[in-house]
Design a protein around this nucleic acid. Sequence first.
DNA 1: CCTACCGATCGGTAGG
DNA 2: CCTACCGATCGGTAGG
Lengths: 193, 193
Amino acid sequence: MQNEIKLTRKEQIITTAELLFKEKGYMATTMRDIARCEGVEAASLYSHIKSKDEILITICFRMAEHFEMAMAEVNDIYFNAEEKLRMAIKNHVNIIASDLNASAVFLKEWRHLPEPELGEFISRRHEFKIILQQGIDENVFDDVDKKFAVLTILSTVSWIVEWYKPGGVMNPDEISEKLSDFILTGLKKKILN
Amino acid sequence: MQNEIKLTRKEQIITTAELLFKEKGYMATTMRDIARCEGVEAASLYSHIKSKDEILITICFRMAEHFEMAMAEVNDIYFNAEEKLRMAIKNHVNIIASDLNASAVFLKEWRHLPEPELGEFISRRHEFKIILQQGIDENVFDDVDKKFAVLTILSTVSWIVEWYKPGGVMNPDEISEKLSDFILTGLKKKILN
DNA sequence: CCTACCGATCGGTAGG
DNA sequence: CCTACCGATCGGTAGG
């Protein structure tokens, strides 16, 4: 079995869709837009994919798995709350930075998933937040502070897709470090007082 | 001239559109959806508004003015960097908390503005970020830190529209205070080291 | 992968 | 504010 250098046609279509869904949004992107980028007629796409929905489902659930696996790793390996928090942030930032288009679609277009996938997506997302929150739970931080810290982390990390450019002023590690410092310094201050 | 208790029909339509645009997105909301909520036929909407575009333009530019006015106030009245930062955060949070639907549309649906309004919106948004950054500029904070702080503030404040519920665990003032503390403690730590 | 095409639905108009 | 309607475009299928 030889190494595939080129993506399959289906993967090419998905990659193109990731770019267009990010740029214009899912609803504003037509199958004809995708076809034009691929250099074929819209009807030809349907030999490789079942529907427009299917593309969105594939993108969103793939990314969900990446984030869930990273979270599982954090909870398996690292022990104290600070290390867990730092590692969770770092993993999140790295996933997003290494696949900006798919991440943007995952973060911003999931609500256009059809049922029953939408329901499944929302409940997995909820489960994920609970795991993240429990992950840093050692009765070390105040409850409300911790909740707020988690929300701040998720918001900042998600926002990265809006401004991060590879080769910019900050690389992913620097972003992770700065964010960790902000959050952890903020949390610790309360303890020391 | 008596006080208007009821909104004009046009304002009712815009208010309904804010809710639907937030809930489903601009592209996924049809004029027939809006009409159904208003209890009229789609065609009837056009006696009060010119087009679907016009509704989005109204929502986005109204909110832009609110944010710009709040920012102008901060730069006119408050003097040191810390006070400015705290006030900017507080004003942002208050504007969003007091008009969640319109804020969500402003933050997430602006890219569907038609030209030339889209171009104007983007350049005003850019100008706004520069003002915010210069507002807290006193050569007190490190440049990269400050830039990151501004991005973190904007991201957290914007994210509020995703989870804030009136009457929840945190009220707007508590949110502003916690966020200010996080950011300022993070910035100060660097200075003291 | 293409040509040809379809039913549904969109934003919007005419005319009252 | 309604009925009636339109041109455009959508996601998708048939058949090769």
